[in-house]
Simulated assay, not measured.
Amino acid sequence: MKVFVAAAVAAGLLSAAPAFANMELAKAKNCLTCHSVDQKLVGPAYKDVAKKYAGDSTAVAKLAEKIQKGGSGVWGQMPMPANPVTPEEAKTLATWVLSLK
Score class of each variant (00 low, 15 high):
M1A: 07
K2L: 12
V3K: 09
F4K: 03
V5Y: 15
A6N: 00
A7F: 01
A8Y: 14
A8V: 14
A8I: 09
V9K: 00
V9G: 01
A10L: 14
A10Y: 11
A11M: 04
A11T: 06
G12R: 12
G12C: 08
G12N: 04
L14I: 12
L14M: 10
S15N: 02
A17D: 02
P18Y: 07
A19K: 10
A19C: 07
A19R: 11
F20C: 04
F20L: 14
A21I: 03
N22V: 01
N22M: 07
E24P: 02
L25S: 02
A26P: 10
K27M: 13
K27E: 14
A28F: 09
N30Y: 12
C31M: 08
L32Q: 00
T33S: 15
T33F: 06
C34R: 10
C34L: 12
S36G: 13
S36F: 00
S36H: 03
V37M: 15
V37G: 11
V37S: 10
L41S: 13
L41W: 00
V42K: 09
G43D: 08
G43E: 08
G43F: 15
G43Y: 13
G43H: 06
G43T: 09
P44S: 06
P44Y: 02
A45Y: 14
K47L: 07
D48V: 12
V49L: 09
V49S: 05
K52H: 05
K52T: 03
K52A: 01
Y53R: 09
Y53C: 04
G55D: 07
G55A: 13
G55I: 10
D56L: 11
S57Q: 13
S57C: 04
T58P: 15
T58W: 13
T58A: 11
V60T: 09
K62G: 08
L63V: 07
L63M: 04
L63R: 00
A64G: 08
A64C: 09
E65N: 05
E65H: 09
K66H: 12
I67Y: 13
I67A: 04
I67R: 12
Q68E: 15
Q68I: 15
K69R: 11
K69E: 14
G70A: 03
G70L: 05
G71T: 07
G71D: 06
G71F: 11
S72G: 04
G73M: 02
W75P: 11
G76V: 12
G76F: 03
Q77H: 05
Q77D: 09
M78W: 13
P79Y: 00
M80Y: 00
M80T: 07
A82G: 15
A82Y: 07
N83P: 04
N83H: 14
P84Y: 01
P84R: 02
P84N: 08
T86I: 05
P87Q: 14
E88C: 02
E88Y: 07
E89W: 03
A90Y: 04
A90T: 11
A90S: 04
A90E: 01
K91D: 14
L93R: 08
A94Q: 08
A94G: 11
T95K: 14
W96G: 04
V97K: 00
L98Q: 00
L98W: 05
L98F: 05
L98P: 06
L98K: 04
